[in-house]
């Protein structure tokens, strides 16, 4: 699986999951979509950080 393919699946899937996760936080579709967008950015940021950390650890410690 290429990196581009993984990103192309991961980003929309995270946004759609965040829509459902944010559903109780707003009574309208517009409100839910906005909260979900902010949460998606947060989750993607943490994901990039964690994956980058694992790559660095692998480069440092794995032969």
């Amino acid at each position: 699986m290429s990196l581009l393919f993984r990103i192309a699946v991961f980003l929309p899937a995270v946004y759609l999951v965040m829509i459902v996760y944010s559903a109780p936080l707003a009574p309208t579709a517009k409100g839910v979509a906005e909260i979900a967008a902010r949460k998606t950015v947060k989750v993607v940021g943490w994901t990039v950080l964690i994956v980058a950390s694992m790559w660095i650890l692998a480069a440092l410690f794995l032969p």
Binding site: I19, V20, A23, P27, T28, A29, K30, V32
Partner: peptide, 8 residues
């Protein structure tokens, strides 16, 4: 909550 239901 019609529009929210369609989105979800």
């Amino acid at each position: 909550q019609k529009d929210k239901g369609i989105l979800l």
